[in-house]
Computed example of a mutant assay.
Amino acid sequence: MPLPEFAFKLRTFGTGFSKVTRHLLTETKPEDVTLLQFEILHFLYTEDSATFGQIGACTGMSLPNTSREVKKLIQKKLVTKRADLKDKRVYFVELSPSGQELMTASSAKLERLISGQYAHLNPEDVNEVMQALDLLSEKLLGE
C-alpha cells in the first residue's frame, strides 16, 4: 500500500475513533468533573499512578495546567499525591478510594454503553474486531 493512502486511512480511522471515544467519555463522566478531569481520572484508572509529566503528556496539557487540574481533583478528594521516596521533587498522583469507586462505576457504565452501541454485532464480528484491535495495538502502538 502506498504510504499516502496508509496515512489517509490511519488519519480517517483515528478521527472516527476519537469521536467515538469522546462521546463515550462524555456519556460516562460524572456531572461534577470536567471532561479534562475525567480524562485524568481515566488515565489514572488504567495506570494506577503517574507523575504530573506523564499526565500532561497523555492529556496534551502543559505542566502548570496539569498541576491546576490535579489540584482540583485533590480538593474533590478523587486523587491523592505522594512524593517519590528517592526524589522528593517528583510527585505521583493516584486515585483515592472515592476516585477508585467513581471510576469503577464509570467503567461499568461504559461497558453497558459499548454493549448497547455494538449489540448488532454477532459473536464472529466481535471476535474479528477484537483480533483487529490486537493487531492495531501490536503494530501501531507497540503493545
Results as ranks from 00 to 15, higher is better:
59 T>W: 07
79 V>F: 06
39 E>V: 01
100 Q>V: 07
62 S>M: 00
9 K>F: 12
105 A>K: 09
21 T>Y: 10
102 L>I: 05
65 N>E: 15
53 G>T: 00
14 G>Y: 03
13 F>W: 11
56 G>H: 00
44 L>W: 08
106 S>I: 05
73 L>T: 00
40 I>G: 10
63 L>K: 05
88 K>A: 10
103 M>W: 03
33 V>I: 12
53 G>W: 05
52 F>H: 09
73 L>V: 04
80 T>F: 02
75 Q>P: 00
99 G>I: 01
107 S>P: 02
43 F>K: 08
82 R>Q: 13
85 L>Y: 08
64 P>C: 11
78 L>C: 12
62 S>R: 08
74 I>H: 04
80 T>E: 13
58 C>T: 07
64 P>Y: 08
30 P>W: 01
26 T>F: 12
49 S>Y: 05
23 H>N: 14
36 L>C: 04
75 Q>E: 15
66 T>F: 06
70 V>W: 07
106 S>F: 03
35 L>H: 08
64 P>M: 04
58 C>G: 11
16 G>Y: 07
42 H>L: 00
58 C>Y: 07
44 L>V: 03
89 R>S: 14
29 K>D: 09
79 V>Q: 02
46 T>Y: 04
85 L>W: 05
107 S>H: 09
64 P>L: 05
105 A>T: 14
97 P>H: 05
61 M>Y: 09
77 K>F: 06
11 R>I: 10
56 G>D: 04
88 K>F: 08
88 K>R: 00
9 K>H: 12
100 Q>G: 10
34 T>R: 02
76 K>R: 12
78 L>N: 11
11 R>L: 15
8 F>I: 08
85 L>T: 11
89 R>I: 03
73 L>S: 10
59 T>F: 03
38 F>L: 09
14 G>L: 10
86 K>N: 15
90 V>S: 10
84 D>V: 00
85 L>I: 11
87 D>F: 07
107 S>C: 02
33 V>T: 15
11 R>K: 12
35 L>F: 02
15 T>Q: 13
19 K>C: 09
29 K>Q: 04
71 K>V: 05
22 R>P: 00
15 T>A: 13
83 A>E: 15
8 F>P: 07
53 G>Q: 08
59 T>C: 09
94 E>D: 13
31 E>W: 01
10 L>T: 15
90 V>G: 07
103 M>Y: 06
